[in-house]
């Protein structure tokens, strides 16, 4: 799961006018760009950055939901949640592989995540204090991610677009399981309903922030749109998400925590209240409630696993040597 909030890649590029025009012509013909095709350096850099952030988001995103696997309330929920979090890890794998086609290694990208240099989706810097947060994440966070990722299935870079097709199918399943958790809570006891409402209150605004700054404040959108990495602006996607989600909340009998939210008959869209961009900036820059914990957990897993990875490499080398000796002896 991921959204387009914080790409911030430098898309400046130094190729000749002629090269750029030929590349743009391919993009405009809706041809897919493949890893070995000529491409502007800025295009490559933007994609490495975006796919890397997307992959990191999947991996860090395993932590807030993983927080509830051992406490899931039924066997069915426990299995569904473990499978879902496993899917997120799988998305991370595809995405790292897609980025590797552009000449950057998974190790390099991992290092940038662990050192805090690479960004990941800020939404995962919020805590999951209750079971209802698992429902709300599936419903809202995966729902917001889908809004962003469906257009990415048509992204001009082939490996990314193809990875997104499977990812979207799985995310859509996740979104439904999240909504089903919310539905069960909303139809349950008073304390379950309250748990669901509180989770909606916690996740609504951060979910809207997942789409990134308003178009008027977003500096990097234009070139990505031109190269068809991105197909819709931040505000367009945010509106789509609100329009799809508000009736779902109504169906649950829950209240969206925005007193200014109302249907606009003229625009056929919901007008919504002001997003707290100061909070957004604080979380993006490392000052959310869980930023430090997330990076610490990722670093701990990586450091604790160092001896395992080293053992695997050394063993593989021993095995290769043995085969080599056996082959020489046979000759």
């Amino acid at each position: 799961m991921y959204s387009q909030g914080l790409i911030g890649a430098d898309s400046s590029t130094t190729e000749s006018e002629e090269f750029l025009a030929a590349f743009q012509a391919r993009i405009d013909r809706e041809e897919k760009i493949e890893p070995n095709d000529p491409m502007p350096e800025g295009y490559r850099r933007t994609l490495v950055r975006q796919i890397g952030q997307h992959a990191h988001s999947e991996i860090v995103g395993m932590l807030p939901e993983g927080n509830w696997i051992t406490r899931a309330p039924s066997l069915r929920r426990k299995i569904a949640l473990l499978a879902k979090v496993q899917d997120e890890g799988g998305h991370g794998l595809y995405l790292y592989s897609a980025a590797e086609t552009l000449g950057v290694s998974r190790e390099q990208m991992t290092e940038e995540l662990l050192s805090g240099k690479a960004k990941y989706s800020s939404i995962f810097n919020y805590p999951t204090p209750t079971w209802a947060d698992i429902g709300a994440i599936g419903w809202l966070v995966d729902g917001a991610a889908i809004m962003n990722q469906i257009p990415l299935c048509r992204c001009s870079f082939g490996p990314y677009a193809r990875a997104m097709i499977r990812v979207c199918k799985e995310e859509s399943f996740h979104q439904r399981q999240g909504y089903e958790i919310m539905m069960t809570l909303a139809r349950g006891s008073e304390e379950q309903k309250q748990m669901a409402q509180e989770a909606l209150n916690r996740w609504w605004w951060p979910s809207l922030m997942m789409f990134g700054p308003h178009d008027s404040d977003s500096t990097h959108g234009d070139q990505s749109m031109k190269w068809k990495i991105k197909r819709f602006s931040n505000d367009e996607l945010r509106q789509k998400f609100i329009t799809a989600t508000v009736p779902q909340a109504e169906y649950l009998g829950l209240t969206v925590p925005d007193p200014d939210l109302k249907w606009n008959e003229e625009t056929k869209l919901y007008d919504h209240g002001e997003i707290d961009w100061a909070e957004f900036k604080a979380v993006v820059s490392g000052n959310g409630q869980m930023n430090r914990d997330r990076i610490r957990d990722r670093n701990k897993a990586w450091d604790d696993g160092a001896w395992v990875r080293e053992a695997a490499l050394v063993h593989a080398q021993k095995r290769a040597d043995k085969q080599h000796i056996a082959r020489e002896a046979a000759e």
Binding site: L63, G66, T70, L82, V85, G89, K300, G305, V308, R309
Partner: peptide, 15 residues
């Protein structure tokens, strides 16, 4: 085994 989720030494082992 589910306690490992998110903390495995390598991504393939998460899976």
């Amino acid at each position: 085994l589910s306690e490992w989720c998110g903390h495995a030494p390598i991504l393939e082992e998460e899976m």
